[in-house]
């Protein structure tokens, strides 16, 4: 392979892996939007909280990767359930904008709580170090491949939940037509609680998956936020398949831009993607159909 082609393939591969990880919190964000109808910026701190919960499970308690991820999911999910019930739910009657602003305040509060407990230092997970494979000039990390596989399994579980379970279908019904769901006897409060739990649980998983590659600190979730929002908006905020497509577009775009731009401009891709989609196709690539 020519060096340029090898670099291109390398970045494409990195982009797919980054996009798959990004899809996990983007699914959470878009699911919460589909049901609760406001952009929940508290996703950032819940991603960080999940990353730290996974860190405690993995480093302090010595649990292996998968149980640590499960712990991250449940911790961030429960935090999401409680914070929504206590903080955001009262805002919802005042409209989406007010609730979104409330979610920013909430995320700053949680982030500082995490900083208070863990301080600002960088922390890494305790994982077996595996050597990268090199295939035709392209470097493939076993840890990244594992993250990709985990992300794909999580996406599969999310869609299985929505397709095959009573609660998953009820959630789609509320996203489709809340008034009719009410008439049919679906309890909107229960659905709101489940989506807050599941959505923030996915955010927590996303935070830990992002941290697995590098390290975590109290700003882990905040830094990922722009890309996660870009993914959800590009695919159509509120559309679950859209979140996956959007995450791949943003993940690959962020990597491929390295061909022509220095890494410090990387976050411009997220902005640019949001801008382009809002100008050209405001409802996102797949529209705002939930499912």
């Amino acid at each position: 392979m020519s060096p340029f082609l090898a670099e291109f393939v390398q970045l494409l591969l990195n982009g797919v892996m980054a996009g798959a990880i990004l899809a996990v919190p983007a699914l959470g964000l878009t699911a919460m939007f589909a049901v609760l109808r406001f952009p929940n910026f508290a996703l950032a701190s819940h991603a960080t909280a999940g990353a730290f919960a996974g860190y405690v499970a993995n480093v302090s308690f010595g649990l292996p990767l998968i149980p640590s991820l499960v712990f991250a999911f449940f911790f961030a999910g429960l935090l999401g359930l409680v914070s929504d019930e206590v903080v955001l739910k009262p805002f919802r009657a005042m409209g989406a904008i007010t609730t979104a602003i409330g979610s920013i305040a909430l995320t700053i509060a949680i982030e500082n709580l995490i900083r208070f407990v863990f301080a600002n230092e960088l922390r890494g997970y305790d994982l077996p170090i595996a050597r990268d494979m090199i295939v035709g000039g392209v470097r493939i990390g076993p840890q990244q491949m594992q993250n990709l596989a985990i992300s794909v399994v999580i996406m599969g579980l999310v869609f299985a939940f929505l397709t095959f379970t009573r609660m998953g279908k009820a959630m789609r019904a509320v996203a489709d037509n809340p008034m009719l769901a009410d008439i049919k006897g679906i309890n909107a409060d229960t659905v709101a609680r489940i989506v807050s739990f599941g959505g923030m649980g996915l955010a927590g998983l996303g935070g830990m998956l992002i941290g697995l590659d590098t390290s975590i600190d109290p700003l882990t979730g905040f830094r990922a936020m722009l890309s996660v929002f870009a993914a959800a908006v590009v695919g159509g905020l509120g559309s679950l398949p859209g979140a996956i497509v959007g995450a791949l577009v943003v993940g690959i775009g962020e990597e491929l831009c390295l061909l022509v731009l220095s890494p410090s401009y990387r976050s411009a891709v997220g902005f640019l993607a949001i801008l382009l989609v809002l100008v050209l196709r405001p409802r996102g690539i797949l529209g705002q159909r939930a499912y």
Binding site: R172, N177, I183, R289
Partner: peptide, 12 residues
């Protein structure tokens, strides 16, 4: 009760 409009879940 069957409403006049929006009486099904379109994506389901």
């Amino acid at each position: 009760y069957v409403p006049q409009e929006h009486n099904v879940f379109p994506s389901m």
